[in-house]
Every structure is written in C-alpha cells, then in structure tokens.
C-alpha cells in the first residue's frame, strides 16, 4: 500500500491554512469570490481550488454545532477516474497518489462523471484546458516530503504517512478516544478503500463528507459489463454465423424449389437488385 493522509476532523479548527498551502505549493491562482455566509470559500472546489474546508454551521438540540471538513481527492485504492480514463492519463501510482498526465489527457471529462466524490475539475475557462485535482503533492512525496497541506496544518489534523500505519493510528485513536470518535474510519471501505482517511467526532451527516458512497471498488461497476464483452461477441458472432448458414441453406432450398417450379410465374422472393449478392 502507498502513502495516504489521515484527517482527524475532531482536531481541525477550520483555519484553512491547508487550503492556502495547497494553492501556494501547486501555484493555483486565487479565484474571485464574494462573502459566503457559510464561510466556505471559494464555495466550490474547481480547477483552481483543489482542496477546501467545507464549513457546516447548524443547531442540534438547541446547541450550536460547527464543523470543518477538509475535502480533496480521496486517492482511491481503486480509482474510478483511472478506470474510465480513455487516454490512460490517470494513474494510481505505487507511492499512493492518483495523478493525471496532462500530456495524455484529451479532455473527455469522463473522470468527472465517474468519480464517486466529484473530485476532478476542468479548466472550462481555457482554450487548452487541463483536468485538475489534488495530486497528493506527488512531487513532494517523490522528494521525500509530506504533502503541503499536512505540513502546514497547525493543529495536526492532517497526518501524512503510510496508509496502513494511518489506519492503525486511526483504530487506536478510536479505541483510546473514550467515545470521542464515532466508530467509523471514513475511507477504509468507501469506494473500496481510499488513501485519504477521516476520523470524526460527530455523525457523518454533521460533516460535509459525502455519504452513501459505495463500499465496492467502483471500477467493478463497469468492468462487470466489459468483462462480458467477449461473451457478447461470442454469442452475437456465433448466432450470426449460424443464422447466416441457416439462411443460405434456406435460400438454396427456396431457389431449388423455385427452379422446380420455374415458369410458374412470379418468384416467392421478388428480388430487387439483390441478385449480385446472394
């Protein structure tokens, strides 16, 4: 297994240092925004904003609740985006990150449809656009560094490391937490497992994490159909050949009958221009 990040939502204080660090490291331009009463800003992730802290402010039993959910690519262990990419531009690397090769991407945008978390974002505003998303700072990882967001996080909410170790750490925190955490490591099973994992102290509907995400490996959704293509080919091919043989035979019999009854008048099959090809 490769690297990943463990994001402990009980520690995140919504400072958005990670959001700025991401833009800084990856050289992403600021986008025009206006005041958002929910605080989340830019309000949606885009080709220029790969990670956001999604704020949620609400009331539960008369008590104010406010949570901060860091969102970015989940770096699925079996990425849907990779599986659908027509150009094989998206790759789950051994190191953990799921990356997009800009030189290969043709811009079909199928990954946007496929990603169960709605992650890839396109530069619709450009004439020569790129498909963009969090790279898990693959360039930093290659250089032996942790991700920019993890390095910045003042509260220690983002931990970077081997996914296996992070999973262990997450389990320990839940076990030692005395009920501080809900018993769910988001990303352990979601989408068949993701390199980014989350711990939460509140039920997930009080976070902005996407819920109802399948626990199957998403590429299987299409692979189950594509796997059957050879069978489909076999069935269609064989039945076509069979029908062809049967039809030839039928036509031959008919022709013979025709010959026997020649001179009797109009044929059974008035043929128009088909004579060359029978």
């Amino acid at each position: 297994m490769g690297k990943g990040m463990l994001i402990d939502l009980t520690k995140c204080m919504g400072c958005r240092g990670c959001q700025v660090a991401c833009k800084q490291w990856n050289n992403l331009q600021a986008v025009p925004t206006e005041f958002n009463a929910e605080f989340t800003n830019p309000p949606v992730r885009s080709a220029y904003t790969w990670t956001t802290i999604d704020f949620l402010i609400t009331e539960v039993d008369g008590k104010t609740v406010s949570t901060f959910t860091k969102q970015q690519c989940m770096h699925c262990e079996h990425p849907a985006c990779e599986s659908v990419c027509i150009a094989a531009a998206i790759k789950k690397t051994k190191a953990g990150p799921v990356t997009i090769d800009y030189d290969k991407c043709i811009g079909c945008r199928y990954c946007q449809v496929a990603c169960p978390f709605g992650v890839p974002k396109y530069q619709f505003d450009k004439a020569t656009p790129k498909m963009q998303k969090c790279t898990m700072c693959a360039d930093r990882i290659e250089a032996g560094m942790e991700t920019a967001c993890a390095a910045t996080c003042p509260s220690g909410a983002i931990k970077f490391g081997e996914r296996a170790d992070l999973l262990k750490m997450a389990r320990e925190r839940i076990a030692k937490g005395n009920g501080k955490y809900i018993d769910h490591i988001y990303g352990e099973e979601e989408a068949g497992g993701t390199a980014v994992l989350y711990l939460s102290g509140v039920p997930l509907d009080l976070t902005k994490l996407k819920q109802g995400v399948t626990e199957e490996e998403v590429p299987n959704f299409t692979w189950k159909a594509m796997r059957q293509l050879p069978a489909l080919l076999g069935v269609v091919g064989l039945s076509s050949l069979g029908l062809m043989a049967y039809s030839s035979r039928r036509n031959a019999v008919a022709a013979a009958e025709e010959g026997a009854r020649s001179g009797a008048g109009a044929g059974k099959h008035p043929s128009k221009g088909g004579k060359h090809h029978d």
């Binding site: 990779e82 599986s83 659908v84 990419c85 027509i86 150009a87 094989a88 290969k104 043709i106 079909c108 199928y110 590429p219 299409t222 692979w223 159909a225 594509m226």
Partner: peptide, 14 residues
C-alpha cells in the same frame, strides 16, 4: 491519441 499511442482497456469510452 488514445487510439494511436495509448489507451486503457478498462475504459468503456476507450
């Protein structure tokens, strides 16, 4: 490009 240089047999689009 995908047809000529590279491609991904897992992709229905491919």
């Amino acid at each position: 490009n995908p047809l000529v240089f590279w491609g991904n047999i897992h992709s229905a689009l491919f």
